[in-house]
Structures are given as structure tokens and as C-alpha cells.
Nucleic acid binder design. Structure first.
Length: 205
DNA sequence: ACCGGGATGTTCT
DNA sequence: GAACATCCCGGTG
């Protein structure tokens, strides 16, 4: 990460998650002494998206999603995994971007220690729950402000632009709203989670 | 390489 | 009681 890395502005996040998500590619997520470059994301569009945790309105779990933008929304799933989102839109809109994979940049030794099963470094952050485990993210960081570095978590722009033509596909692991093409990734990056699920091509011959 | 199943507990019906 | 924005391991080819 270059020394000129700077925090993003609030306005960057105060838009629908489908606009923010591809722009989040190649940004840097810092957590304590560890950092990754974001290489895979998915958008979840609040109360109008059947796959979103916000679909059925506010609950205790999704409270952070309904709050102000530029916060980290962390949730627990499958009885053992944490996953992290970036809250977008204005307060009350509950639109968010799931962080699905990252390229390790800093603190790789600590990541390996927290992910003893990872054989290669490309297995450290190649999935939403792996990413959280590698960075040490759990409930304690839910709601953290990504602009101020609250609780050691921060989102930075180190000058690397998002890909001009990112990979795009349907979202992964859903049973509902599986048609929406709201997953973006850095094409060819080895840290992208394996399941590529390319969009069905329009060509039916 | 690819596929199938089990782990594990919170959240909501 | 079911579903779950997942991961890992052990089978087979």
C-alpha cells in the first residue's frame, strides 16, 4: 500500500449499493495492522431486494444496515462464520455491499495464524467468511465507521483505480433473487472466490 | 478437478 | 423448526 492512501468521502457511499460496489474494487480495507485490496463484492439493495437481510424491515441483527453510510455491517451465519458489508445509501435505505474477497497486502503472518487451514496465501481471503477470519473481523466491529478508522477499521483509496471492465456475474449462494447480476470482481485475480458463475449468455442460438 | 455432505448456532416463522 | 449472503474435508475420476 502506498503512503499516500487517503480515506474515501461520505458521498462515495451515499449511493445505491449497485453503484458503489464496482467502485469498491481495488480499494484498501485496513483492520488493525492487517490490510487487503478488495477484489470481489456483491450488492444488496435493501427492502426491495428479497436476498437482502433488510428485505423484511429493521430487526436487531440488521440495525447497522439501516443506519448511516460508510459503516461496517457484520453478521454471523451458518453457526460459525462472520461476513462484512459496507453500508451505502442514506440513513434508512439499508443498501449494502458484501465484501467477498481480498488480496492480502499487510499482516499476512497474522492472517496465516488466524487461518491455519489455508494452504496457500490465495486461500486466506478468497471468500466472505475467510476474509473476516483473516482480518479478525467479528461482531465487535459491527457498526464501525470506515471514514474515521473507528475500532481500527478503515477504507482507503491508495490510487489504484477500479478495473475499467470488471468481471460481473449473478450473486453467490442465494436461493432467492438469483437472477440479479450484482457481483463484481477483479477479473483474473487469484484471490477471487472460486465459484465464477458467469452470467448466462444472451446467445441462445 | 469436481462433487456431496456435515458442521454449528443465531434469527425469524 | 427451518433457513442460512459459508467453509472444509473426504470421496471419486
Amino acid at each position: 500500500m502506498s503512503p499516500g492512501a487517503r480515506p474515501l468521502r461520505r458521498a462515495f457511499f451515499a449511493r445505491p449499493s449497485t453503484e458503489v460496489a464496482p467502485q469498491l474494487l481495488n480499494k484498501v480495507l485496513v483492520c488493525g495492522r492487517r490490510a487487503v485490496r478488495i477484489v470481489e463484492v456483491e450488492a444488496y439493495e435493501g427492502e426491495r431486494d428479497p436476498a437482502s437481510h433488510a428485505y423484511r424491515g429493521p430487526t436487531a441483527r440488521n440495525a447497522t444496515m439501516f443506519g448511516p453510510p460508510a459503516r461496517l455491517y457484520v453478521y454471523f451465519t451458518y453457526g460459525m462464520h462472520w461476513c462484512a458489508n459496507v453500508v451505502c445509501g442514506e440513513t434508512g435505505e439499508a443498501t449494502a455491499v458484501l465484501l467477498r474477497a481480498g488480496a492480502p497486502l499487510r499482516g499476512v503472518g497474522a492472517m496465516r495464524a488466524d487461518r491455519p487451514g489455508a494452504r496457500r496465501d490465495r486461500d486466506l481471503c478468497s471468500g466472505p467468511a475467510k476474509l473476516c477470519q483473516a482480518l479478525g473481523i467479528d461482531r465487535a466491529r459491527d457498526g464501525a465507521n470506515l471514514l474515521s478508522g473507528d475500532r481500527g477499521v478503515r477504507l482507503l483509496d491508495d490510487g489504484t483505480p477500479p478495473p475499467r471492465r470488471p468481471g460481473r456475474s449473478a450473486r453467490v449462494g442465494l436461493r432467492v433473487a438469483i437472477d440479479r447480476p450484482w457481483r463484481w470482481y477483479v477479473d483474473g485475480d487469484p484471490n477471487v472466490s472460486a465459484d465464477p458463475r458467469p452470467l448466462p449468455t444472451a446467445d441462445m442460438t
